[in-house]
Design a protein around this nucleic acid. Structure first.
Lengths: 230, 230, 230, 230
DNA sequence: AATGAATGAGAATTCATTCAT
DNA sequence: TATGAATGAATTCTCATTCAT
């Protein structure tokens, strides 16, 4: 909420410029990571001087965090739009899947940046503050869906729509895990390759198949089992 | 097959030394990442000279890849042991989950290193070869499970054990996605936090609950649904 | 006479503003030195814009010199007041010592700035003009006392008050050296420590002792010796 | 004693190189001061790489302190040689004065560096450690003479050589103050100018006069006064 | 084979100075 | 006249890589 990683000067500055700086930052950090990205290069690409960047952000890390925050905000918006609808669970799942598939293009940088954080938080030697802050920021995305998912599952249980012998929170976690992995598969090189290995080289030309099969998987998972398996 | 990112000298050198060097490298790269890790520091920690390291590996990247290769080999072994058993699918799933839970300690470095790769493969500016090679290496881990899972699912379908209206490959992908995310949750800081958000602060003191719920989830997912959901 | 290192605009500006700017400058330069002091910070502290500062002074160095000039003026006033009295030499000495002891608090910045110059004038690489000008300015303080002291000593010799086998100028120099060092001891960290080493940790709580002993020293020095020393 | 501002690597390095590095550092720091001196320039002048300098010293400040330490050691040697002789006080004084006059040439850098410290210890914004350490180091020079002077004066009092109604410590302080100022006058630009103002333009071509007059001053100061002054 | 001292290009950050408003 | 946002050269420090021993 309180965007606390930039200096006041940044907030006061021109909207257009703010946008350009954040966008350039997000692009670079998403493409190269925190360490590899170069402040001087970012400044040049954004069409401002290094000095100005340092008027706006005390350190490279603060600038990074501000970019992450922006990316997270965007993701939150995308996610909460779909997540807070009143549709039945499978309808929502379908919407989420299709959003993930569409998002892969232009907005992939937000996901990539988010993915970058999942790694950074492990790194010792990085000032505790940076990794901790990055983690907290990115967790906001999870926060949105975690609550929405488990609430919805709980309600669906009450309505008798889905099995009631399961823990809504745990199932929400499994549900989100598949979707998050799918998200990465549509945006990050590595996960893309991984998905191809599992699903075949042409899987990314077959969006409908992905929707169908994943819905089947979720439908099944949430329903009472025949229980003759074993 | 043996992609060999090292110079012949390394292969010829003492077994013990090879082991120490790789272990130190894996530790450091897992803890700090490719950029942040320092060759001079690794050399010191491994008890050899930098010079020798450069006799063994042409570049830092080559050394990194050799470490990744080693980590991947270890993961492959761990995975294939469980994956290639002849148990029914849920028995296998349980074994995998318990392995993941046990592995979190000592062997976490292999997973962390594997996680590092998922990021690197996105990075432009990194010599194409490095990210490409890292991707290929890590994908070997997927290769093992992808094949095993989909084969097994296909067989289970034939046997009538599980629903036959689903694509074995796709389901194998979803299955693995949940497990991989679980794996990360037990080893990487960020995913750990994420799991807590979904499942509660004390989830890591409740291994049995995780096993139970996830098995329920999988059992359900693989079985015919009551199909009255909508 | 008015060496004027400032632009005409400064002279024309509001008295109050001039005062604030010089005071802030003197404070900062005294506390941090020429290099370490920051024009942007000074501007902020003085409540004016950097731009205005540059309307008033062509360079940081010019601003520094103007501050030095002001400090020197103040010191000159303090010094000449005491120095030009008509008292006997020891009475004057006592007044000087007591002034030094009292001055240590609020006006210490002038002495510190003066002390800063003693260093700057050594520095090559600094535009010749700056160090040269600083030297000339600060020497004005010396000028006042040098003349006063040697004149007085010469007169005292004529009056038979003090030994006449000594060079008034040289003795004035020795006299001033002790007083200047005392001055620094009461204002600058380093000299303070040095005085403690010589005179004991509690010397600064014993102003009277300092007065007494130093007067004894001076009295003796200026009087005919028993001459049996060897 | 424990030269604790450099890394072990420096101590292990070639004697000749150590000498060159310290000498270059002392020269530069003496000429330009801590802030203005440039590590890259020093490295070039010393004929080594910046990298190596940073192998030897963790920071610019540490390098500076090592140089100061070296300068102080040299000064201590010079001082203690003269100071600890068994001569009568005026004989010693003469030796000290002549040493100061001779030292002015080649060894002036040590004095200049020492003078630099007297300023640094005032500067806020400088890491406390640096100024504190510099102060402690330089105080060692004082330590040597403070002890020697007051001991000697006390002894001379017992022997009836000098007045016994004065505090040996205080008189030692006044004695050293004149000598220190003389020292600076023979080495530092500013004090040189100051001495000229007091003693005349040609004072530096008149070493004997300085010796004579200062000895007179000291002789007188230490002897019983005729006490008819006032 | 093995060492580790030495290199130097490159990156983050600062701050005197300018200039459009 | 006054502002303060913007500039970018310059500085400290890091670390992959080399090479004489």
């Amino acid at each position: 909420m309180s965007s606390s990683f930039c200096k006041p000067a940044f907030l006061k500055s021109d909207e257009e410029r703010k946008k350009v700086i954040l966008e350039t930052g997000i692009n670079e950090f998403a493409a190269l990571g925190l360490e590899e990205a170069n402040i001087n290069v970012i400044a040049k690409k954004a069409g401002v001087s290094v000095g100005l960047l340092y008027k706006y952000f005390a350190t490279k890390e603060d600038f990074f965090l501000t970019c992450v925050e922006e990316a997270v905000k965007t993701l939150e918006e995308i996610v909460s739009e779909v997540v807070t609808s009143n549709d039945k669970i499978l309808v929502r799942a379908e919407k989420l899947i299709r959003t993930i598939q569409k998002t892969s293009g232009a907005d992939s940088k937000y996901v990539k940046l988010y993915n970058e954080i999942t790694k950074i938080s492990n790194e010792k030697e990085l000032s505790k503050d940076v990794s901790e802050s990055a983690k907290l920021l990115a967790n906001r995305v999870e926060g949105v869906s975690a609550k929405a998912y488990s609430d919805f599952i709980a309600k669906a249980q009450k309505d008798g729509d889905i099995r009631n012998d399961c823990d809504p929170k745990m199932f929400a976690f499994f549900f989100d895990s598949v979707l998050m992995t799918l998200q990465f598969s549509y945006t990050c090189d590595y996960y893309r390759e991984r998905m191809k290995i599992f699903c075949g080289e042409d899987i990314f030309e077959n969006d409908e198949k992905v929707v169908d099969e994943l819905l089947k998987f979720f439908e099944s998972a949430f329903t009472f089992s025949r229980s003759d398996l074993k």
